[in-house]
Amino acid sequence: MSVLLFELSLTLYFAATIVSVVELFKGTKTTSNFILVFAIGGFALHTATILARYAAAGHLPITSLHEASSFFAWCIVLIFFFLEYRYRVDLLGPFTMPVVFVLMLSSSILPREIKPLSPVLQSYWLGIHTFLAFLGDAAFATAFGVGIMYLIQEHHLKTKRLGGLFQRLPNLQILDEINYKLITLGFPLLTLAIITGALWAESAWGSYWRWDPKEVWSLITWFIYALVLHARLTAGWRGRKAAMLSIVGFISVIFTFFGVNLLLKGLHAFV
C-alpha cells in the first residue's frame, strides 16, 4: 500500500517538475497553477505514504536513507507551500520542485525494507531531533532555490540583458528577503537539531560529542550559515554574496546528508 502511494506521489512530483520546465520556457498563469495542483496532490499522497510507514514501523520513518530522502522532500514541499501562501512570487515552483523530485527519485532507488530499530535508538529523541534537522535542511534547500533565482535576476540587471526570465522573475529585494528569512528559520532549527542530537548521544552512547563525520559536517554547515547571518548583520553581506553563500551552505547540507552516509562511515551510518 505504502509502495503504491509512494510511486503515485513520485509521479505527481515528476509531473510538477515537467510543468516547471515548461513554466521556465513559456510560462502562463495556467502552468503555475498546474505546478501547485500537482504539488498539492503529490504532497497529500506523500503524507499518506509517511503515515502508512509510521504505522508499520512504530516510529517516524527516517531510519533508512530511503525514508530520510523522502522525508526531506516532504519538508521542502511544506516550506514551498508556506512561501506560495505567504509571498506568491512567480517561478518559485521551477526552482524548488526539481529539488523535491530529485530527492524523491533518489529515495525511490534506495532499499526500502523496514529494518528493526536498534535498541539504543528507541527514544523520543528520534522524532524530535530528526524533525528539527530535516525542517532546517528543507529551509536551506528552498533558500538555495531562491538564491539561484536571485543570482539569475541579478545577472540580468547587471549585464543589462533583459530577455529570458527577467520579466517573470520577482524583484531582487523580495528574493533577498525570502532568502534571509529562510536562513533565519533554518539556522535555529539546525542549532536545536545539533543540541538535541548531543543530548540524545549522551543518553544513548554516554557522550555528547564524538566527532563522528555527521556531527563534524553538521557543524561545518552550522558555521557556514552562522557566517551568512553574521556577515549580513555586521558587514551588510546581502544580495549576491548572501545568495552565493546560501548555495555553498546547501552543498554542505547535501554532503552532510548523502555524502557522509555514502562515503564516510560513522555512528550515523543508519541515516
Binding site: Q153, H156, L157, Q167, N171, L172, Q173, E177
Partner: peptide
C-alpha cells in the same frame, strides 16, 4: 505578451526599478 516590456526610456527606468525594489 505584446503589451509587456516598456518601450520608452522613462518607462524602462521605472520597470527596472520595479525589478530591484519591492
Amino acid at each position: 505578451r505584446i503589451a509587456e516590456n516598456a518601450v520608452s526610456i522613462s518607462f524602462a527606468a521605472f520597470e527596472l526599478a520595479r525589478k530591484i525594489f519591492t
